[in-house]
Computed example of a mutant assay.
Amino acid sequence: MQRISAAIAKRLLWWGTWAIIGVLVLNAAVGLWMQSQHLVLNDSTCEPVGLYQLLGSPYPLHDGELVEVGIPGPAHHTAVAEGLKYHWFPAGQPWIKKIAAVPGQTVRLTRSGVWVDGHTLPNSRVDRWTPGHHHQIVHYPFGTYHLQRGQVWLYAPGNYAFDSSYYGPVQETSILQRAVSWWTIPGSQFWLQKGD
């Protein structure tokens, strides 16, 4: 009986080892394929969850375009520092956002939402608390902002989207690449339900 148990344990160990190796090889193959296709995974609910294809240089920038953005410097953006402190997003991982406004456009930020040149952005109400009311959220001061040269206002339509409503305009140099939706889960940006 002991001999049979030892043989079964040895076989399970052998199969387990090969299963782990298989998963690692598959993971590496998928990663290389995604890299060759210029695909990135967005797992936040700022934009629909899924794969986005990066298309290279984003310049010249236009409002309404989807872009990959480097995380703004936490030293200049209190909300970004707060987000990194509480692990709301991983440090160093770029974001997928929309450009809502470029230099020369006017943004009005209020508790009830964001207006760009007089047009409201859907689902742009500024949230006071994180889901579950665990932390109060720092937001950019309410007011009207005329974007200067080199500034862009970022927007994401999802519930609890972390965009310029919280950290303000960012420098154009933060925009890394133009992006397009490649395969996403429609409506997934609304999975987190907003509280009061």
Rank of each mutant, 00 (worst) to 15 (best):
Q2F: 12
R3Q: 15
S5F: 12
A9K: 10
K10P: 01
R11L: 15
L12E: 01
L13I: 12
T17C: 13
V25P: 00
N27G: 09
N27W: 07
L32E: 05
W33V: 10
Q35H: 11
Q35D: 13
Q35N: 12
S36Y: 12
Q37C: 11
H38Y: 15
V40A: 05
S44Y: 01
E47G: 01
G50T: 06
G56F: 02
S57V: 12
Y59R: 14
L61R: 00
H62T: 10
E68H: 01
G73I: 02
A75V: 06
H76Q: 14
T78F: 08
A79N: 02
V80I: 09
A81H: 12
A81N: 14
G83T: 09
K85M: 10
H87I: 05
W88N: 02
F89I: 07
F89W: 03
A91Y: 00
A91N: 00
A91K: 00
A91M: 00
G92Y: 00
W95N: 00
K98D: 00
Q105D: 03
R108Y: 00
W115M: 15
L121D: 01
R125P: 11
D127P: 03
D127V: 14
R128C: 15
R128G: 15
W129N: 11
Q136P: 03
I137W: 10
P141N: 02
T144Y: 07
Y145Q: 08
Q148R: 15
G150L: 07
V152Q: 03
W153V: 01
L154I: 06
L154N: 10
Y155N: 04
A156N: 05
N159W: 09
N159H: 15
G168Y: 04
G168F: 02
P169G: 04
V170L: 02
L176W: 04
W182P: 09
W183E: 03
I185P: 04
L192S: 07
L192V: 10
